[in-house]
Design a protein around this nucleic acid. Structure first.
Lengths: 154, 154
DNA sequence: TCAATAACGGAAGAATCTTCCATGAAGGCA
DNA sequence: TGCCTTCATGGAAGATTCTTCCGTTATTGA
């Protein structure tokens, strides 16, 4: 699965992860191949799914999404139907950045971005506890973002 | 802070968040301004920090980082020095994608990517519980990634 | 050793970037 | 109102880059 990536591919992935705006010419020079070869390799990294997409990272504070909250969720029943219904509803809530089914004291962990605490409290009452099958939630307000969405180390 | 973004800027931000590889010409056409104006506006979005960076999103499974784990951490002491020391050490561990100081039953929440469970168990024993000031950790293995790092909704 | 396959770099037309400049709109002030 | 300053816009053009074709080189396997 990943044996098809040589040193050059890996270096390209790391460089593009750090700076997705690198031009093909710059990238080619950085990994010491011709622009033509670099172009071909980059195309392959996209075509074969090594790079799923390229995203401009918007600064949350600049668009009034400066508050981060982690929420643990416990459902009423642990049936596949209950899980499916919950997940389907979660996908529609755009303020939920992460939603993961976990093993442990919670069923799901959510990572949520909103404008401020007041925003969250309203959303919590209106939309979170209203999600299908939710028995209880536990909220962890983030007081300091030490590391957020660090690049993948590989 | 954000009042200086008009409709066009917001649309550009959303388009670039969805596809950071959009050419200036394409972006210009999508928001119905000239390439020159679009170029200037894009530059401003970067210069003034609305876009912090552009990242190629690497598929974790393709580079042997298919296992996701959430970890709650409790420190021995809740002193500023203890927090600072912990955070400094965390920043050096590249497999930690998120590290957030939270209010609640834990001091910190970590989001970690590794190859598999065996990988995590080794890392947990070697590096996590060895972090300065750690009293206890609670591990939540992610069994299903429902939503991971969704784009910001604004 | 030799053939077959795959990957490479050079080259060139097409497209894009980037900047300069002139034009037109918006806001402040007498 | 009339004028001036300030600012954002689009056209234009040289420089750069992209993208693909093609001949050559390296690697693999019999």
């Amino acid at each position: 699965m990943k044996a098809s990536l040589d040193r050059i591919d890996l270096k390209m992935l790391r460089l593009l992860q750090d700076n997705g705006r690198l031009t093909n010419a710059e990238l080619a020079q950085s990994v010491a191949v011709s622009p033509a070869t670099c172009h071909r390799r980059t195309q392959r990294l996209f075509d074969e799914g090594y790079i799923s997409h390229v995203r401009a990272v918007v600064t949350p504070q600049k668009v009034d999404r400066g508050a981060l909250v982690m929420v643990g969720v416990v459902l009423d029943r642990s049936t596949p139907e209950s899980f499916a219904e919950f997940e389907k509803a979660v996908a529609k809530l755009k303020f939920i950045l992460d939603c993961h089914l976990v093993a442990g004291d919670f069923d799901y962990f959510l990572k949520i971005r909103v404008g401020d605490m007041a925003d969250f409290n309203r959303i919590h009452g209106d939309q979170l506890i209203a999600l299908p099958g939710v028995r209880q939630t536990r909220t962890f307000f983030v007081m300091k973002e030490v590391v957020d969405n660090a690049p993948l180390d590989f």
